[in-house]
């Protein structure tokens, strides 16, 4: 019988991993190439897509959309605001719920009820409620809003559903983590006479950080899915999702392809960046072998 190692396989060299990892993407390119060869009108050539990707500041004349770079910028601003708001609300609430049962009893039912609802399906109704209110209309009023180009493109409805999509994973991971804190650590601080601030700063937050970072990474992935989908809805005039969708309507498929590639790449970078952060804040956890 063949000897099987119980240990997980050793990590191999980076070259091997890159080589193996690029097999499937390469197949994808082959499929794309075959599509081009078939003469389909929907599938743009590599050159056309490459042109769009390498000229990100060009305002496409044929397309009712801003440049690729501006679209990326707007999408990221929306993401940052909605996601940031989710972090700022979910972490304190999560800590509060994790520490106090009564708070959790109040919050928990609504959370479990709201969590399964895909945030994108709420967008139409939220758009009806909030209209085209944007940061610009909030700060400068309906009439002058158009003067503030970027701010006017950041609709409140989008921030709200981004918040909605990101809130739950962050909140839930915080609650679970805070609850798992060892009583003995809390007792140590109690005997030292520590107040709330010291408890938070030296015990609760550093203990929770690895789980929180994990929750935040998952939430960021969800947010990225949500924002692109939301930008496809009517009422938007910019963003990666908007560009992708508009290009489809006018049959400028090279922009659709370019947008899809950018979406994938940014998603990957965000995830990898966060993974690093997660590793960094989790290093104190002993690795069990």
């Amino acid at each position: 019988m063949r000897q099987q190692s119980l240990k997980p396989e050793q990590a191999d060299s980076l070259t091997l991993r890159l080589a193996l990892g690029s097999i499937l993407p390469a197949l994808l390119f082959v499929a794309w190439w075959m599509g081009i060869q078939s003469g389909s009108a929907v599938i743009p050539t590599f050159g056309e897509v490459w042109h769009v990707l390498t000229h990100p500041f060009e305002e496409p004349e044929e397309l009712n959309s801003r440049s690729l770079a501006f679209s990326v910028l707007l999408t990221l601003i929306r993401l940052g605001l909605g996601y940031g708001l989710a972090v700022l609300t979910a972490v304190p609430l999560g800590i509060l719920s994790g520490r106090h049962r009564l708070v959790e009893y109040v919050i928990h039912p609504l959370v479990e009820l709201a969590r399964p609802i895909n945030p994108v399906v709420l967008l139409p109704i939220i758009t009806v409620l909030l209209g085209i209110s944007s940061l610009a209309t909030v700060f400068f009023g309906q009439i002058d809003a158009w003067r503030y180009d970027v701010l006017d493109q950041v609709q409140l409805a989008m921030i709200l559903i981004l918040w909605y999509g990101a809130f739950f994973p962050i909140y839930l991971s915080t609650v679970h983590s805070v609850r798992n804190l060892r009583i003995s650590h809390l007792e140590t601080m109690h005997l030292l006479g520590a107040g709330r601030w010291h408890l938070l700063r030296w015990v609760i937050i550093p203990y929770t950080l690895p789980a929180l970072a994990n929750g935040m990474r998952i939430a960021l992935g969800i947010s990225w899915l949500v924002i692109i989908a939301a930008e496809i809805f009517p009422g938007t005039r910019s963003g990666l999702g908007y560009m992708l969708c508009t290009a489809c309507k006018t049959s400028d498929y090279e922009y659709t392809f370019a947008a899809i590639i950018v979406i994938g790449t940014i998603g990957l970078l965000l995830n990898e960046g966060f993974r690093r952060f997660e590793r960094q804040v989790s290093h104190w956890r002993a690795v069990e072998k």
Binding site: R182, S184, H185, T188, V203, P206, Y207, L209, W284, R285
Partner: peptide, 8 residues
């Protein structure tokens, strides 16, 4: 055991 804070 578990007296020290492992994150510090």
């Amino acid at each position: 055991e578990h007296s020290l804070f492992p994150w510090l």
